[in-house]
């Protein structure tokens, strides 16, 4: 089977991690070997795992049959990359202990971002340790940082031109621009700001990578409400209703209308998948139920 990577992004707080986990669980259920990769300093999933809290780091850990979880930080990715070129552990360690290089790695533009995408595409490019997953789902950064991430290879290629890293950057860029290999999923909520941000991001992804995106509209009202249902709701006898119930009727009718509008807006720029709001606290069970709803993505 052809390897595939999925980059999941969206505005902060829209549920990127839940969607990423849902996707990974769905693929694993189909019998594929799946890697779910978190970026950033802290693991979102470590507290939610079915087997109890677990330290998640650069070494992938099996958490379910067919599913491994890993946390990629820029420095570890860079370290592995360096080791690929200079297979002498002592030199690599020296590099990362050196204060000058430490400062450089921390702040140098796009170096860490490049290393992360380098890792995600390492299977296709045949570099580094074995990376034989069928599907890699990356629970990626929120909008602004995500743009910096996907622009890193091109920016680096332009900045350094020739040399091994210039070549690497160009090859990474080619792979993330390949729609057969790399899929970009933007998560939004049925609210104005996340939807606007998702639409703008889809345009910039199109411009930067020439890629079409897919959207997930998370937390839509559960069950289908047709127009006539909403009308019927308006006709209900409400004399004995407490204020909260009357207010909720108004809010529900209004937000169901907006929800349709957002679905239409998003569908002008890519396929949209709706995920119902399950009204329960985050747990592994919740992520599993979400994965059932993502069958067609």
């Amino acid at each position: 089977m052809q390897q595939k990577i999925v980059l999941v992004t969206g505005k902060g707080g829209v549920g990127k991690s839940s969607v990423a986990a849902g996707l990974a669980l769905k693929e694993a259920r189909k019998g594929r070997r799946v890697l779910l990769a978190e970026l950033g300093e802290r693991s979102y999933f470590s507290e939610l795992l079915p087997s109890g809290p677990m330290e998640i780091s650069y070494q992938a850990k099996a958490i379910e049959s067919g599913l491994e979880l890993v946390k990629w930080d820029g420095e570890s990715c860079l370290k592995e990359y360096l080791f690929h070129y200079i297979p002498i552990r002592r030199v690599v360690d020296l590099f990362f202990e050196n204060p000058v290089m430490k400062a450089l790695v921390q702040a140098a533009p796009a170096l860490k971002e490049l290393a992360i995408l380098g890792k995600a595409t390492s299977g296709k490019r045949n570099v580094g340790p074995a990376f034989d997953y069928d599907v890699v789902v990356v629970d990626s950064y929120a909008t602004g940082h995500f743009q910096a991430l996907v622009r890193a290879p091109q920016g680096m290629a332009e900045a350094i031109g020739f040399g091994p890293m210039g070549e690497q950057s160009r090859s990474i860029e080619r792979w993330i621009c390949d729609p057969e290999f790399c899929q970009i999923v933007i998560v939004a909520l049925p609210e104005e700001l996340p939807v606007v941000e998702a639409l703008e991001l889809s345009e910039s992804v199109q411009a930067d990578l020439g890629q079409k995106v897919e959207f997930v509209l998370n937390k839509v009202w559960p069950k289908t409400w047709r127009a006539e249902d909403i009308q019927a709701l308006g006709r209900l006898q409400s004399l004995e209703w407490p204020q909260g119930l009357s207010d909720f009727r108004e809010v529900l009718a209004q937000s169901l209308g907006q929800q349709c509008q957002y679905l239409d807006q998003l569908s002008t720029r890519g396929r949209v998948h709706s995920l119902p709001w399950l009204l329960e606290p985050s747990s592994w069970g919740l992520l599993k139920s979400l994965s059932q709803q993502l069958e067609d993505l």
């Binding site: 690599v92 050196n98 290089m101 450089l104 350094i160 020739f162 040399g163």
Partner: peptide, 22 residues
Amino acid sequence: RGTHTALRALEKITGSAFVGEL
């Protein structure tokens, strides 16, 4: 001295153009 070794490592992965720019 340590930095020289580190820099050679950097040069090896990025190329001399990058190190020059840096």
